[in-house]
Amino acid sequence: MQSIECPWCGPRDEIEFRYGGQAGVAYPPDPAALSDEEWAGYVFVRDNPRGWFHERWFHAHGCRTWFSIRRHTVTHETEPGPALHGSGRAPSAPGAGEAG
């Protein structure tokens, strides 16, 4: 049972969280402009390092905050990660797609 440090609630048992996978994979600004391979890369492909990994967690049974940590996938050492600002990119932002 890992102890995950929630930035709001402090360290809590892993069972209070939902794992969110790799951090820093932003929604592409214009999905329609991507090739099938590029889009598949966004949807399906993630890093799987042996070592430090920047990943997202969601404190589902706590404060319901999404946040990131860095975790070593071998030793399970953890350290706080940067706040998740979001890409700020809106799928329906003007010019983002095949308008009309």
Binding site: A26, F58, T65, W66, L84, H85, G86
Partner: peptide, 9 residues
């Protein structure tokens, strides 16, 4: 919540 917090805050 994921989309709201991480993509469209």
């Amino acid at each position: 919540e994921e989309w709201r917090q991480t993509e469209w805050p």
